[in-house]
Amino acid sequence: MSVSGRAVTVLGAGIGGLGCALALARRGGRVRVFEQSREIAEVGAGIQISPNGMRVLDALGLGDEVRAGAPRARAVSLRNHADGREVVRLDLARLAPGQDYRFVHRADLIGALATAAREAGVEIRLGRRVHGVEPGRPARLRLAGGATAEADLVIGADGVHSVLRPVLEGPQKARFTGQVAWRAVIDNDIDHPPEARVHMGPGRHLVSYPLRGGAAINLVAVEERAAWTAEGWDHADDPDALRAAFAGFGGRVPAMLGAVESVGLWGLHRHPVAGRWHGAGVALLGDAAHPTLPFLAQGANMALEDAWVLAACLDARDDTDAALARYQALRRKRVARVIAAAEGNAWKYHLRNPLIRRSAHLAMGLLGRVSPGRMVRGFDWLYAHDVTREA
């Protein structure tokens, strides 16, 4: 088989990178991970792992461990911003049997993946910054301080600022979407139920859902804004700025925002899906290949799917080039559809005209009452997909 005994270097100890490292090590690969940070921190807080992502975690043997501390989602509830009234409810209990949707703390998932990867023989090297990658057989890496390294295969799972992607694609500039997002975690003092609540308002929306057995609440708040300069996850902001931006929101929102003590802020940028995901001895994975906006909660799920499919394709073919081509062929159309669907949700949440917003909410509510099952089935293309069988 193609993986057994091969030296693989993964760039980035995120969800996709660690998931891929684990999947390759379980297939006999000699895997190391280079992570530029000196520790694996709790950046990002909450994520939603939908059934398609949970299938990968089950296949990796981590499903039960992740479920142990992650609330099972009962519903996605779209709500009016002014009074918190529910507009329409996507009842996740109507998903097909075996489709498990969870609210997970990112640090818990990263910790589980890292522990399992180390137990499988993966070497995780923290504080290792890679300055350049040269495709080839072997592929070569230039590290900070002048050191070099080689590998049979280098996988770029290093996010939107990937050092490998420009090698394959050339320089590309991201486009600011006109939206920024705040992220915070607070104590669950309002008895938030196990559902994702999307509070929709003019030019902005706020998502809330519980974490860690219901002890905490994850908040993601998005606002349309004319300008932004930086992109990333680590820009601290004043909680009062978040509260001011959502001052017109009612229901439980004021209580949740009042509990925010620290908050991160980042600009949402649109990156095209990479045209080339692989070259001689190199491949892209997750956000490095196809960054997505957070309006469908699929970034982590797509990275997990990529991780499994890449490992399975490499294991099924002795020809690495053919395996990487098969990986891209299996993934590119699906991730493009996910990205398009995520972008389409933004305008639905942010309707500014009161009459249009009221009409849209009435239509959504009517559909939810008349045909609730149809609304859930509309996500079968996403949630019912099983890459552990596909690849």
Rank of each mutant, 00 (worst) to 15 (best):
H290I: 05
R32L: 01
V76M: 11
V180M: 11
D240V: 10
H131K: 09
A184T: 08
A230Y: 09
A23Y: 06
E39C: 00
R357W: 05
A184V: 06
P291S: 08
S2P: 15
G111I: 00
G145V: 10
P166L: 00
D187M: 05
I356F: 11
R67C: 00
A181H: 04
P239L: 04
R55N: 12
N80G: 12
V33C: 06
A112N: 01
P239M: 07
R175S: 13
V133Q: 05
E86M: 02
D238T: 03
R334S: 01
R85V: 08
V253K: 10
W228R: 12
A283P: 10
R118N: 03
F103W: 08
G279N: 03
Q172G: 09
A73Y: 01
Y101K: 07
G61M: 06
R369C: 10
L168K: 06
P291M: 02
V370P: 12
D240L: 09
L153A: 07
P138C: 04
E305L: 11
W347H: 14
R183S: 01
R212W: 00
D187H: 06
A73H: 02
H131C: 11
K333R: 15
A93D: 15
R129Q: 13
G98W: 03
K348A: 12
A325R: 14
V76I: 15
W266S: 00
S162R: 10
T9N: 03
A360E: 13
L284H: 03
G286D: 02
A312P: 13
A259R: 12
G146A: 07
L382F: 13
R32T: 04
R212T: 05
F295A: 10
L113R: 05
R74E: 15
Q179T: 15
D380P: 11
V222F: 14
P354E: 00
L314M: 13
L95T: 08
L366S: 15
A226V: 13
E343L: 13
A384F: 12
A73V: 04
A316P: 12
V282H: 05
I49S: 06
E223W: 09
P254D: 02
A23P: 10
Q99V: 09
I155V: 15
G281H: 04
G178N: 04
A215E: 14
V376G: 07
P194N: 07
G127W: 00
I339Q: 15
T320K: 02
N80K: 10
G145W: 06
A82N: 07
E390F: 12
V167I: 11
V88P: 01
H269C: 03
Q36N: 07
R252T: 08
Y383S: 11
P71D: 00
V8E: 07
H290R: 15
R55G: 12
V309G: 11
V8G: 02
A21M: 06
M375V: 14
D91H: 02
T9M: 03
A297M: 06
A221H: 05
L60F: 11
E35R: 00
L126H: 10
G214V: 02
V370W: 13
P291D: 04
